[in-house]
Design a protein around this nucleic acid. Structure first.
Length: 210
DNA sequence: ACATTAAGTGATT
DNA sequence: AATCACTTAATGT
């Protein structure tokens, strides 16, 4: 675990902080599609992702969802930070896009480290910045892009975080992630295939233009 | 061979 | 772009 930590965060944090992290953090592994954080749950620790990708979704009162962005190796989640600081309920839902390995840092330590280590402070601020940028990108996508553009962006993003241009999903699952209907997705996928941007198979889509 | 699930399509709003 | 109603294709048992 220490090796894993150093590999991903060694260039960011000083040795003393790395030691503290490996002393205190709780190592966890999750399988693809398991839920890490549920909407309305309370959070008491923040994650440092060692491996894999996590899909962040917004959920309405009916349980309908919409993908906002992905967290990857080397990321943490600023929403989680503010959430556990203020003891408010989570406003998002986090699901493993791939198998995930991560470290959970208890919020008490995370606060102490803010004062103790400049590298930690910078890391947290940078993370806030990254999350905001991604959030704005998500808003732009939803507000300004047509469904066909959103779909293609979704496929590219998914291929990217999975490090694989072959995506294993059903049309229905895509429809859920983009908050639309399966029929719409099937039709748009067909037209993307006609434009030679993707190749369709049952339960699989190969993205050709990355 | 049959049932189930995924995907394709025309018509309508 | 959403919904309905239906068809066709692929897959599991």
């Amino acid at each position: 675990m220490t090796e894993h930590l150093k590999h991903n965060y060694g260039y960011l944090f000083e040795d003393k902080l790395l030691d503290e992290i490996s002393d205190i953090a709780v190592y966890k592994e999750y399988k693809t599609n398991t839920s890490i954080i549920d909407t309305n749950s309370y959070i008491t620790s923040i994650p440092l992702i060692l491996e894999g990708a996590i899909k962040i979704l917004r959920e309405d009162e009916n349980g309908d969802e919409l993908v906002l962005y992905y967290l990857e190796t080397g990321d943490t989640c600023a929403v989680t930070l503010s959430c556990c600081m203020k003891k408010t309920k989570s406003k998002i839902h986090a699901v493993c896009e791939t198998d995930v390995k991560l470290l959970m840092i208890p919020k008490e330590k995370m606060v102490v480290w803010l004062g103790k280590y400049q590298s930690w402070q910078e890391f947290i601020l940078q993370s806030y910045h990254n999350r905001l940028e991604e959030f704005i990108e998500a808003v732009d996508t939803i507000a300004f892009m047509n469904m066909d553009q959103r779909l293609f962006k979704y496929l590219k993003d998914k291929a990217f975080v999975n490090h694989n241009d072959v995506i294993s999903v059903t049309h229905q699952e895509i429809a859920n992630d983009l908050h639309t209907s399966r029929v719409v997705i099937s039709r748009l996928l067909k037209s993307l295939e006609k434009k030679s941007k993707i190749k369709l198979q049952r339960n699989q889509i190969r993205v050709l233009e990355l």
